Amino acid sequence: MSESEPAAESATEAPAEARPPFPPFTAETAAQKVQGAEDAWNTRDPQKVALAYTPDSVWRNRDEFVTGRDEIVAFLTRKWERECDYVLRKSLWSFTDDRIAVRFQYEWHDADEQWWRSYGNELWEFTDIGLMARREASINDVPIAEADRRILGPRPPEERGVDFDLR
């Protein structure tokens, strides 16, 4: 092999785009995937978040349909411009070999300083290299008083894996 030829990937080496943990999921690796998603979304960095999805990933988010990373970045950019001080908690609901079901809550305020708690469920499907190929999200928003907030920042390490109240 010459210096100009790319080195072949070994059978055990994951592609550069790979996002461990990989399917098939166990309870431990599914929980790791959920926490990783929570951590990434709490950065509120659309470019970073989009890298966890396949280039042709398909989403349904509420009543909006999104396809591909460019549309994911545009969607998340709009979302976090509207949903100020967004902070999220996710909880593993169930999993199979390459799918994970998640429930979540996040809090945010609008331009008028009205605080909201958004409740939802997501269904995720992954490729063999750990990228999400499909995401379906159902979400409801409930107005709350600022004094009723309970999600005040990214989850501290001692709270990882701890579930949250339904209301």
Rank of each mutant, 00 (worst) to 15 (best):
Q35A: 14
Y53D: 00
R155D: 06
T26F: 13
A11D: 15
D165V: 13
A30M: 02
E81V: 08
I72G: 00
V142K: 11
D97F: 01
Y53E: 01
R149D: 10
P24T: 05
D165K: 12
T127W: 03
A18M: 13
S4G: 06
H109L: 04
I100N: 00
T77V: 05
E83L: 09
D98C: 11
Q105V: 15
E9V: 09
R149C: 10
V34C: 06
F75N: 09
E38T: 07
E17C: 10
F104M: 08
P143R: 13
A52M: 05
W124K: 01
T12W: 10
L131F: 09
F164L: 07
K48S: 07
D141S: 14
E3M: 07
T29I: 03
A14K: 02
E125D: 11
R135I: 05
I129M: 08
W116K: 10
D112S: 06
A18P: 12
N121M: 14
A30R: 00
W116Y: 15
E122N: 09
S91A: 12
R89M: 03
E38K: 02
I139N: 06
H109Y: 04
A133H: 02
V66R: 02
E13Q: 15
A30G: 02
T43K: 06
I72H: 01
Y106C: 06
S10Q: 07
R117A: 10
A50E: 00
D97L: 01
T12P: 03
E113P: 02
G130S: 09
D56G: 09
R117W: 07
G161W: 11
V162W: 05
D141L: 07
R134M: 12
I144Y: 01
F164N: 02
T12K: 08
T29D: 01
W116M: 13
A50C: 01
N61D: 11
Q114W: 11
R134T: 15
N61W: 11
L152I: 11
W93Y: 12
A50H: 00
R82Q: 14
W116R: 08
P21T: 06
P157G: 12
A147T: 15
Y119K: 09
F126R: 00
G120Y: 02
Q105N: 08
D148T: 06
N61L: 07
P143G: 08
D97E: 07
R99V: 05
R99F: 04
E71L: 07
W115L: 05
P20M: 05
T54I: 05
M132K: 00
F22L: 13
A7D: 05
R19T: 14
I151K: 04
T67K: 09
I139S: 07
S94Y: 06
A8I: 15
P24F: 04
P24Q: 04
I139C: 10
R82N: 12
A74T: 14
G130Y: 01
F25A: 01
A37S: 15
A50N: 00
D70L: 05
V34D: 01
D163R: 13
E107T: 04
E122T: 09
Q47L: 09
A8L: 15
S118E: 13
A27N: 10
K79C: 11
N42C: 11
